[in-house]
Structures are given as structure tokens and as C-alpha cells.
Amino acid sequence: MNIVVCVKYVPDATADRRFESDNTVDRVGVDGLLSELDEYAVEQALQLKEKRADEEITVTALTIGPEKAVDAVRKALQMGADSAVHVQDDAIAGSDAVATSLVLAKAIEKIGQPDVVMCGMASTDAGMSVVPAMLAERLGLPQVTMAAVVETQGNQVRIKRDGDTATEVVGGTMPLVISVTDQSGEARYPSFKGIMAAKKKPLETYTLADLGVDAGQVGLSVAWSAVEDTAARPPRTAGEIVKDEDGSGATALVEFLASKKFI
């Protein structure tokens, strides 16, 4: 069985994230890392493999991103993925989800027929949560998304998720695309052994030419949507803070709410 897990290299959420002058996300000047939300995808891919120990299962970590993005797949290898692919090409910079899903789909086809494509619930930077659906559309596969629990039996997949209006069990048949949430279970830390082993695992770098993707199909200039402007949110003006003493806090709070007509 082939499992491809898609992981993204993102600017650290606790660092000072910003935009470049061309309104693309600054992915070079800000420290980056494997998106925390994609660690959950790696974890579920590894658990799937471990639960079916009697089968031949390969977990391949796949990322698209700048040179430093190799850190994302490297971490996945350290956690236990078997091999990794990094698609790196200057032409990709500034790509939107439409182009990202195209390159991911081509890379997955090159890696080989997948049984499961595992994704995170959203990128922690752009966070559109659309790449898995677009990827499924491009690969002609069903998708079961936002999984809090993933179970498989043979080629059947069942996931559990918290929908807006109901808790649902969703079923699908492999091959398919799965996305998992941060409710799916803590991701493991790489062990020392894992870190050493990762150094010997295969890690390939593809360019767009390797994937047969024309550079004119990706990148900022052909994005199907364009950012017109970005603006930092004005800092909130400092509010009033009172210390509660013998009930004074509650009275002041209610006064405030009343002054704003919330009561």
C-alpha cells in the first residue's frame, strides 16, 4: 500500500509573520517549520502503517516549497516516514491553492499510484483548507476530510468527525484523500534513533520539468486570484482594566456592558 502524506513548510506562527512587497507571504525571512497541523497527518499515516504491520506499506512525505522546505519532509522522515519528495522550483513561488494542488497531483502521480493521500486540516499560514479537495478533484478521488478518528479495514476507510450540525461517520473506498484534524491524536516526537535513521532514507528533489508541469501554469503571475492590498490590523487601543475587590469588578463589568448597549 502506498500512503503519500502532504506536508507544508510554514512560517512559525509564534514569529512575526508578514507579507513581502509583492503581497506574497514572506517564507524566507521568517523562521519556518513543518506545519503543526500536518504533523497530525504524518502521525495518522504512521499509525495506519503500524496497525497493518503484516502488509507492505510505504509512507512517502511530500512537500512543495522553497529550499528550506526540505526541513518539513526531513522532520516527517525523522518521525518515521519511509521516503520523501521535495518539489522545489523558483517558478512555484507565489502559487495559489489551484497551482499547489496541480503540482501536488503531478508529484503524487510520479511517486506512484497512491492508496491513501493524507493531508492536514489546513495550512497554519494561509489556512484555506481547500488543497485536499482540489487535490482529490484533480486525482479523480473521493475525499473524507476533517477526521478526528481514522479507521481502515481492507480498502474501506471510516472516519469520524464533528460536523457543524452533527457528529458524522463518513465512509469511502481506497484510493482516496483523507484530511485529519488536531483532534486525531498527538503527533510523536522524533526519537534519537529516528533522527539517525532519517539520514539514510531516500529524499528526492523534483523540479517542475521532472513533473512535466509548465512553469507558465504556476506561480504568482498566473494565480487565478490576486491580492490587491494587505494591511496590518490597527493595534487595538488599550482598554480599561480593573481589579476586582469585593464585587467591584462585576459592577464595573456590567456598567461597561450597559454603556455599550449589550444589556
Binding site: R236, G239, E240, I241, V242, K243, G249, A250, L253, F256
Partner: peptide, 8 residues
């Protein structure tokens, strides 16, 4: 972030 806060 707050417009109004109570320490308590």
C-alpha cells in the same frame, strides 16, 4: 486585546 478587563 480587551476593551474592558476584570482581574479577578
Amino acid at each position: 486585546l480587551v476593551d474592558f478587563g476584570v482581574v479577578g
